[in-house]
Write a protein that binds this DNA or RNA. Structure first.
Lengths: 156, 156
DNA sequence: CATGAAACCATTCTGCA
DNA sequence: TGCAGAATGGTTTCATG
């Protein structure tokens, strides 16, 4: 592993370890060790280095939101009156738990958010009662995801 | 935990367990047990049920793409000549590793994708050489995420 | 990066309420 | 049906080479 000022290079073994763990964060290290032919301790050492280098941002359990009753995913482009009100708007958006992502974007809008809702009515209520009233928001454009056809992380 | 035909209800203890694991998938079950005051065995039982019910979709290691040299995230809206070419287009998009999400959306475009690139030039090359040439794609609109200000899962 | 020992954790089973 | 306790087998960590 080579560390430049900003970018880190990881070797093939690191990649192989990460590939397994990106698929299943709870996979036992010893099983991975057996598959790639080095000791479990060596993998732990590499993982510690990758963590220190900031390559590993953590691990997460993924919850199936559909099963919990959230069936509508939507993207909402938000126009702001002034780009300078971005900080305030994001602060408000953060308070809405259904907002999963928020991006400050180039192009038409100032902000693009991804949100998850129980149904279309829930989405409409959030738009009307939570998002549109935010100070500085002038207009929104909504795109409902009828189907998420790809969902993955970067391939190593 | 109550199981309806399609939607699952999870109680406060389930939520607490999941909250810990959504934050850190490798957190030892016994540590969680100690914090919430029930036995490790009980947590295992609950996790098994949640898994059977489909609430848990898996666990993932999260890799910091910026550290690996991917500094540009972009959303691309794709217009298709015919909506019916969606399936073929998605098949091609799946072959592009930089495409992390692909949604079939209502609104202006047929498809909205999220992709990650090394830099703006890399993004441009992917657009020109990989995405625009896909059969059925008539036009694209690109939104670069200057900053991702929110990134999280649904709150339980 | 490997080894081996020690500490720790996960998992399963049994009994109890 | 849900939980606790105990037992065992596996995992992680640490020291050392």
């Amino acid at each position: 592993m080579k560390i430049n000022s900003l970018q880190i290079e990881i070797d093939g073994i690191d990649k192989e370890i990460l590939r397994y763990l990106m698929e299943d964060a709870r996979k036992p290290i010893l099983q991975i060790a057996a598959k790639i032919g080095i000791s479990g301790a060596a993998i732990h050492q590499r993982l510690r280095k990758l963590e220190q280098a900031g390559v590993i941002a953590g691990s997460k359990f993924i919850v199936n939101t559909k099963v919990l009753g959230y069936s509508t995913m939507a993207f909402v482009g938000i126009y702001l009156e002034k780009a300078s009100s971005n900080f305030e708007a994001v602060k408000e958006l953060r308070k809405i738990p259904e907002v999963l992502e928020c991006h400050y974007t180039t192009g038409n809008w100032s902000i693009l958010i991804k949100m998850i809702c129980r149904d279309n009515e829930h989405l409409m209520q959030l738009l009307n009662k939570k998002i549109q009233p935010i100070n500085g928001v002038s207009r929104t454009e909504t795109f409902i995801s009828l189907e998420q056809q790809i969902e993955r992380q970067i391939q190593l």
